[in-house]
Design a protein around this nucleic acid. Structure first.
Ligand SMILES: [Mn+2]
Ligand SMILES: [Mn+2]
Ligand SMILES: [Zn+2]
Ligand SMILES: [Zn+2]
Lengths: 142, 142
DNA sequence: TTTTAAATGCAAATGATTTGCATTTGCAAA
DNA sequence: TTTGCAAATGCAAATCATTTGCATTTAAAA
């Protein structure tokens, strides 16, 4: 399966924990918090310590199998399977649904900024916030 | 002074703490963490409890005098005096210097995304990362 | 198999931020 | 000016996501 492939290539040992956690992230269409992952594991009757979840996510992030992002207003970090390099996030401020966006409009902007600031720009994070269609309708009917 | 004006208009009581904290942020060319502000206060011989610093920053944020941002990779929040509405941040990943950028290239992109996703987009956060001129030179001479 | 570095479980620590409560203070009304 | 009181503050303790130390287990190379 995909997770075993990617673990093998990464140089990390293929452990039950890592496979289970990576599988969960591969299946998820949403970035997930460490504790959410921990709860899904519990549902699947897979007993993995929460600190191991954190350590696993850190390893996966170091190998670029997983991306760690800070989107929500609380202080939890979210983790997402890293299938595609660059991406942006569109977050519904009502229901917290997150949509991942591939298209990036910032290429020429970065060039301009480099000229202006003499920074060497390596990357960026773009988070867009709003209300999803569902939440717009719910809000309207109040 | 500017801080007293803005406090008066905000409806918040003009206390010694609030004036001192807002003054520090007005003077700073960098977003600051709560504890940094606390330390500057100490240098100025102004004894304000750290929890009061946090509560003050929260009040100032609620009144839109201050903006709270999460840029650094650690879990500290930064606070910045809110002179200008919309802005972006260019962060040096070596020395952590932060440059605030006014220009925003995302107007038409937001429109496009709204059409694609049926979200009602309210705002966005854009953080750019790279190496500042100084750090590029330091890195080169290694 | 044997060997050993890496991975894990468990409990305790961390550290930024928040909160409960007693006391103080800004400021509007008298 | 003085008074009354809601708002602000200090202090200590609580929170809570995340990290860490250490003893034990395990993947996988030889
Ligand atoms: Mn982009
Ligand atoms: Mn913008
Ligand atoms: Zn929604
Ligand atoms: Zn720098």
């Amino acid at each position: 399966m995909e997770s075993e492939e990617r673990l093998k290539n990464s140089g990390l040992k293929t452990t039950k924990s890592r496979k289970a956690i990576l599988d969960i992230l591969i299946r998820s269409d949403q970035p997930m918090a460490a504790e959410q992952i921990f709860l899904v594991l519990k549902e699947e009757q897979i007993a993995i310590n929460l600190s191991t979840v954190y350590r696993t996510l850190e390893s996966l992030e170091n190998k670029d199998l997983v991306t760690k992002i800070s989107i929500l207003d609380d202080d939890r970090m979210l983790f997402e399977y890293n299938q595609l390099g660059h991406r942006h996030y569109l977050v519904c401020i009502s229901c917290k649904k997150i949509i991942t966006v591939q298209n990036c409009p910032l290429g020429t902007y970065e060039k301009t900024l480099e000229d202006e600031t003499h920074f060497n720009i390596i990357g960026h994070k773009l988070y867009l916030y709003g209300n999803c269609e569902d939440c717009q309708m719910k809000n309207a009917s109040n």
